[in-house]
Structures are given as structure tokens and as C-alpha cells.
Simulated assay, not measured.
Amino acid sequence: MLCHSINAYVIDCQDVGVKVLNWRTPSLCPLTCPTNSHYSISASSCATPCPGLTSVTCADVSAEGCACNIGYYFNGTGCVPQDECSCYINGKTLKIGETVVADDCSAKYVCPKSGNGHTESMSCTIDETCEIKNGIRGCYAKKCVMGNNGVITTFNGRARDVPNIGVFDLVTICDSNAEGRFRVLMDLQACGPTGPVIAVGIIAFFEGANVNVNSEFDTWVNGWKVSLPFQMENGLIIQVINDQLVIEKKSAVVVSYSRLQEITVTVSESVAEQLCGACGRLADSLSVSVQSTTFEWSPVPFSMCPQ
């Protein structure tokens, strides 16, 4: 109680401008300070703020307390090295080196090593959606997925059952005369009397290349069986990545086909407004119904359900 009384008396003296000398000793009311700080009869938390706090209003009052050691900065709760300071942007606290995207992906908050945080404008492109993946918000490519459960999820996120078996347009350039046109079809079969409709093969058309892939990843290009990886001069690449067969046409479309008979399609912004097929459109929120396709050129069997 004596220590509290003396401390209150010292504060009152300092409030009216009276200079008070250090009255504490190791045996009389010693004061232990947190890590990286030391006791001072006239400490000020505003004296050495982290760079990100320099614009924050602080009552610059000197009073008995703990002050940061030389080379350390006050981060609002304690004294830390400058590279451990935080940034304070738009009501958010960021760690050094951290970047956080706004909820609507219209901006990102950047906290550089200097601790002087800033805001950068951003926006998602037509072929991207603002969402959280693995705990991180950002702009991610919109995907069309033909699942192995008989359900297709279009680019706009709508899911529906596929009603029939057969060969269907999955994604294609609407204008058959357009430069760089492509067309990707899926061969759907019902596996087993009660099993779902799944994709047992892919048939794709690109300029100068017709590609057939079955559920065993056997691949034919222009009627000839090829070994993977396979690359053509027109930018078409076919390869197996992480147990998925990937057909990629540079700057246009990427089709991934898993051994679980699931197809995933992503397309680039350059073709986003030109799409037709079961995957729907990226340019609007309308769904496109799954339409069967008259298809004649199919030199390899595709009715191969997983064992």
C-alpha cells in the first residue's frame, strides 16, 4: 500500500509539472519491466512507436513507467525489434511481410519490412472469383467441374445432375469460325446398374489437333496413340501432373482429368466471353443446359468404367 500511495503522489506531482527524481530502489518498491524495456521516471510510450503507429494519435505524456530499450519500438502492447512491428491499415493489424486482401477483393493491404503499411487497389478478372481458399482470400480462377457423382458445377457455381449418358459439349468457343477456337467434349456413361453417370473419356478439338483420352489415360492425337508428355508447336501440351491428365492450350483452356473420372476446366480471360457448352458462360450468371452432341470421329473406345 505504501508503494501505491507514493506512486500516486509522484503521478500528481508530475501532472502539475514538478520534476521528480527516481525514488525507487532495489529494496523500496522496485518495478520490473517487460522484455526489451527498462524503468524510467519519465517514460513515454509515444517516444519510440513502431513505424505503422506514427500516424496514430497518442497522448504524449511523460510519466513513471517502462520505456523501450534502444533499438526497440512500442507496438501497442510491448517493445519489439522494428522487423517485428506490425502495420495498422484500415482497422486491420498485419504482421511484417503480410498481405491481406479486402473482403470484396477490391484492395489489398500490404505490410512491408519497413512497417509503413499501404493499400493497393485490385480487382478480379472475368475468369476469376473472389473467395477464400486454404484460409487465404484472393482472386482464383473460376472452375467448371464434372464430378464423379453425376453432378456438373458450372463456372457460375451452380450445380445440377446430368440427366443422360452420351457425348456432350463441355466447353467450346461459340463461334465455330473464330480464330483459336477449341471444343472439349466428355463421354458420359452410367457405370453399374445403380452407379452415377461419370466421364469415362475426353474428346477435344484444337486447331491442328484432335485429342482422345480414355479413363486409363491412354491418349490419341489425330488418330495416333502418343506417349506423355506430348507437346505440339501450336502450344498444346498433354501431360500427367499429380495423378491427373492435363490438356493445356496456352492462353486459352486447361482441362484436368483425374483417375477418379472427374473433369475440371479453367479458361483464360481472353476467351471468357466467347464460351458455350455445359460449363456455361463466364460473362454472365446464366446457366447453359447440358446438350448432347452429334459426334462421329471417335476412333478409340471410351466405355471404360473404373473397376
Results as ranks from 00 to 15, higher is better:
residue 276 C to A: 03
residue 248 E to D: 12
residue 260 L to V: 05
residue 159 A to Y: 13
residue 137 R to P: 10
residue 271 V to F: 04
residue 17 G to C: 11
residue 199 A to Q: 07
residue 186 M to R: 01
residue 126 I to Y: 05
residue 290 V to A: 11
residue 82 Q to N: 12
residue 211 V to P: 00
residue 51 P to S: 12
residue 257 Y to K: 02
residue 34 P to G: 09
residue 87 C to R: 02
residue 232 M to W: 01
residue 260 L to S: 15
residue 14 Q to D: 10
residue 83 D to S: 14
residue 229 P to Y: 00
residue 82 Q to L: 15
residue 131 E to G: 07
residue 25 T to L: 02
residue 213 V to W: 00
residue 164 N to G: 07
residue 112 P to L: 07
residue 2 L to Q: 03
residue 196 P to W: 01
residue 32 T to H: 08
residue 79 C to F: 04
residue 114 S to P: 12
residue 245 L to R: 00
residue 281 R to E: 14
residue 284 D to F: 01
residue 177 N to T: 15
residue 68 C to N: 07
residue 295 F to Y: 12
residue 225 K to M: 15
residue 110 V to F: 04
residue 173 I to M: 05
residue 223 G to K: 03
residue 157 G to C: 13
residue 304 M to R: 03
residue 43 A to V: 06
residue 13 C to S: 11
residue 99 T to R: 05
residue 181 R to I: 07
residue 253 V to W: 01
residue 112 P to F: 09
residue 235 G to F: 04
residue 167 V to L: 13
residue 115 G to C: 10
residue 278 A to F: 04
residue 10 V to Q: 05
residue 173 I to W: 00
residue 248 E to Y: 03
residue 133 K to N: 11
residue 286 L to P: 09
residue 153 T to E: 11
residue 196 P to G: 05
residue 101 V to Q: 07
residue 17 G to L: 10
residue 97 G to M: 11
residue 23 W to P: 00
residue 134 N to H: 06
residue 43 A to C: 08
residue 164 N to Q: 15
residue 148 N to V: 07
residue 298 S to C: 03
residue 124 C to G: 06
residue 269 E to M: 01
residue 108 K to A: 04
residue 53 L to R: 10
residue 8 A to K: 10
residue 177 N to V: 08
residue 198 I to R: 09
residue 60 D to W: 00
residue 203 I to N: 00
residue 121 S to H: 04
residue 293 T to M: 13
residue 171 V to S: 13
residue 34 P to S: 11
residue 14 Q to I: 13
residue 141 A to K: 07
residue 199 A to T: 13
residue 163 P to T: 13
residue 294 T to Q: 14
residue 213 V to P: 01
residue 204 A to W: 00
residue 80 V to P: 12
residue 305 C to D: 05
residue 73 Y to V: 03
residue 240 V to W: 01
residue 92 K to W: 04
residue 101 V to R: 11
residue 250 K to S: 14
residue 240 V to Q: 06
residue 110 V to Q: 02
residue 130 C to H: 01
residue 170 L to Y: 01
residue 299 P to G: 14
residue 11 I to G: 03
residue 43 A to G: 07
residue 82 Q to T: 11
residue 253 V to F: 03
residue 27 S to E: 12
residue 290 V to T: 14
residue 303 S to F: 05
residue 180 G to M: 09
residue 272 A to Q: 03
residue 162 V to W: 06
residue 193 P to N: 15
residue 282 L to E: 07
residue 88 Y to V: 04
residue 142 K to H: 02
residue 33 C to V: 03
residue 259 R to E: 13
residue 216 E to A: 11
residue 66 C to T: 09
residue 137 R to W: 09
residue 30 P to L: 03
residue 276 C to V: 00
residue 112 P to D: 06
residue 199 A to N: 10
residue 150 G to R: 06
residue 49 P to N: 02
residue 273 E to C: 05
residue 190 A to H: 12
residue 291 Q to I: 05
residue 127 D to R: 04
residue 9 Y to A: 06
residue 262 E to G: 06
residue 113 K to P: 14
residue 80 V to Q: 03
residue 292 S to L: 12
residue 217 F to R: 04
residue 13 C to Y: 08
residue 74 F to G: 01
residue 143 K to Y: 04
residue 206 F to W: 02
residue 74 F to V: 00
residue 14 Q to H: 02
residue 294 T to R: 15
residue 161 D to G: 06
